[in-house]
Design a protein around this nucleic acid. Structure first.
Lengths: 344, 344
DNA sequence: GCAAAAAATGTGAGCGCTCACACTAGTTTG
DNA sequence: CAAACTAGTGTGAGCGCTCACATTTTTTGC
């Protein structure tokens, strides 16, 4: 009588299958790995035994022997927002299509030590590749050191010219949105920016300011939020108090903040787009149902995830990396009802 | 000269560290595992060498030897919605706190074969435990078979009395919301339900109908959506066309659909809550900024994730499972401005 | 029909770790 | 002061697999 309480169900191994078929474990291994060097009939017999014994290869053993794994790692800042979550799903899906699984490690703050811990944990699992979804600017040397020997792709911000990265040309999107506002006749455009520390915040804000300037106007007042609807609300209130009348449009750093702003304007009896136009960024599935439906920039998160995986596998498959180092997407403007000519 | 293109950087092993310190690999292993049976001075020397060589234990080898891993698996239906994503983040976080990592596997449809594949993939990685976030009703025997030998916790629906599960008492939340509507004087309450196939859809819908009946009224018309804002919009339009005037309030299956409904009412010139009250479910961070701010039921996703992990570890740690099989949360109603007495 | 080539199979070693022990030294104990 | 510990350390085997070969069997060419 075994004394262990929960008698761990022992899984079948190569040897079990081999014994049952009267062949060597190696032959079974060949079948398991799809090698063509097995007689047709033998293969059939073995496949049958595999099914009967419910044999599944022990990945730990395989990994130990090959020093490779079929896991890719993703490190990211807390992704409670819907966007990053979508990216993750897309990554998981396209990795699975290639026979890989995804292991996720979140970091709470962007410190060197958290970065080291997260990447370290992933590396301990011998991930075949890494998707890094965080602001890595200025940390590229650290990253190179941490990832030594493991191919990686960065997501969301060009880190260095020779680092494979998937980037969305946010400036392009914001420029389109700003021009849309300018074309409508707005030239006093306020801005609700994302929190400092996010490359997306800076990029979006700068692109907006630049576009306004190149049209010959001065950028309007700017308040920062933290991506949340609540912060957008507060920012808009602040804008209203400090700069009322000095703007006819608001560029929000994302749709959630735009929603908050919409609410603040409404609560203060300011018609949108009658007196103030609002544009967001991301094009959430629900943005078309805001009040009024939001003009925004469409950000394709699924594309991001897929591109990452594709790029990563280029690096994993060919042992050397010579493929293009950067894949860029230009997001498109989606015009709905939150924008109109000023004073219309 | 080695011919491999990318010379895989060989990581330091126990032996490397041991050689450098003049001790046996076993002693190093003891240090790595925090065994107290090592002389203080030896430990210091070894720790130093570990740091210098940047030694990290090879988890594949450890897993192979121990037949255990420090990975927990999560299987879920595609979690593009913000809720499930939050659950995942919470799981990842509390697992990490216990020294475990998370591997995620999504299923696209709830077929036996997809279920088998996803759980199989996770099992191949020798996960120490499994969080199952999907509708498992009726599939409990299959699940038991698939998970044989691996502790698991189901999330979101009580599957069977003896299956560990974390459930949110959605009926409780919906009852509170419905009573709130009844208290305000509504008794013709329409409903926008979630898609069939989700236990949450049925539970919410039934609880609503039941509460209305027990107050002596008949449940109003009901249309189903798919959780999206768009479907909520369409559902509300349909309600307006087919049953206009036959309801003074709408219970939406979630906040996104409530948002769509809000938009549809607005677009048709129906004041909320003036002529129709609306209540949602989930309490998204942005729901307070809808137009008008939404009365809804708060669903604590982070709690769900944490409870799962806690429960799972109870099963993993004690080898036998005798702990409570179910952990329940009663969500609270959050009253905002989308509800008021009818005709107010 | 027989050597040579090709196909099919088997063998040994080793991946890096942990387990169950065996061993050595110093410490207690009666 | 021998017996019985204890702390600290080392040894052998084995987890389940893959690699690089060695070996056997079958096919092929002339």
């Amino acid at each position: 009588m075994n004394s262990r309480v929960r008698q761990r169900f022992r899984d079948a191994t190569l040897d079990d299958v081999a014994a049952r078929c009267g062949v060597s474990y190696q032959t079974v291994s060949r079948v398991a790995n799809g090698s063509p060097l097995v007689a047709k009939e033998t293969r059939a017999r073995i496949l049958e035994a595999i099914a009967e014994l419910n044999y599944r290869p022990n990945l730990a053993a395989r990994r130990l022997a090959t020093r490779r794994s079929n896991v890719i790692g993703m490190m990211g800042t807390r992704v409670t927002y819907s966007g990053p979550a979508k990216v993750m799903i897309a990554i998981e899906e396209s990795a699975k299509r290639r026979g890989y699984n995804l292991m996720f490690a979140a970091i709470e703050r962007l410190t060197d030590s958290e970065l080291g811990k997260a990447i370290g944990a992933l590396r301990e699992h011998q991930v075949a590749g890494l998707v890094l979804a965080a602001r890595l600017k200025g940390k590229i040397d650290l990253i190179r050191r941490l990832c030594r020997g493991v191919p990686f792709v960065t997501l969301g911000a060009g880190v260095a010219p020779d680092v494979p990265s998937v980037v969305v040309d946010e400036k392009h999107g914001v420029r389109a949105a700003t021009r849309h506002l300018l074309d409508l006749g707005h030239h006093r455009i306020a801005c609700i920016a994302g929190p400092p520390g996010w490359p997306a915040s800076k990029d979006r804000r700068h692109a907006c300011a630049q576009t306004i300037r190149s049209a010959g106007f001065e950028p309007g007042p700017c308040v920062v939020g933290d991506w949340s609807a609540e912060s957008g609300y507060k920012a808009a209130v602040q804008l209203l108090e400090s700069a009322s009348g000095r703007f006819t449009a608001i560029m929000a750093g994302n749709d959630h903040m735009a929603l908050g702003a919409l609410r603040a304007l409404h609560a203060n009896g300011i018609p949108v787009p009658g007196r103030v136009s609002v544009v967001g960024y991301d094009n959430l599935p629900e943005s078309g149902f805001f009040e009024p439906p939001l003009t925004t920039v469409h950000h394709d998160f699924a594309w991001e995830g897929e591109s990452c995986v594709e790029m990563l596998f280029r690096a994993i498959d060919r042992e050397s990396v010579e493929a293009p180092f950067r894949q860029v997407q230009r997001p498109q403007l989606v015009i709905r009802s939150s924008t109109a000519a000023p004073g219309s």
